[in-house]
């Protein structure tokens, strides 16, 4: 299982690569939408990244500000899901 730090590194690498920002150009405690880093499609892409690359299940009720409201919150959400075994089939099969 990934550590908090590993999850954060992966998520930030994805955000930087995909949304063309540098790691020091945005705040990890604030909303990415608020900071103009992502638009609505960006949220779709991040949730797809969680499911496909990290093997985390994201249900409709998970899509809240408490889980997606900042990088830190997303990391906590991923780690929590992972610990609770809420994984997609693809990942749990490996």
């Amino acid at each position: 299982m990934l550590t908090d730090k590993e999850v954060e590194d992966k998520l930030i690498a994805f955000i930087c690569h995909n949304f063309m920002v540098e790691p020091d150009e945005f705040n990890y405690e604030e909303s990415l939408v608020d900071q103009g880093v992502i638009d609505s499609i960006g949220l779709v892409e991040i949730s797809a990244f969680m499911e496909q690359e990290l093997g985390i299940k994201v249900a409709e009720e998970d899509m809240s500000r408490s889980n997606f409201g900042s990088v830190k919150k997303m990391v906590a959400f991923i780690v929590r899901q992972s610990a609770q075994g809420n994984l997609t089939n693809r990942e749990s099969a490996t």
Binding site: F19, S64, R65
Partner: peptide, 30 residues
């Protein structure tokens, strides 16, 4: 759920003097 999350972020700001421009500005800040 994600779209709801997206628009939720504008609930606090949409009625500031920039009205509908809030969303345009946020998207264009890139």
């Amino acid at each position: 759920g994600l779209m709801k999350l997206y628009y939720e972020d504008f609930l606090d700001t949409f009625s500031n003097p920039l009205a509908g421009l809030n969303i345009r500005i946020r998207n264009n800040t890139v």
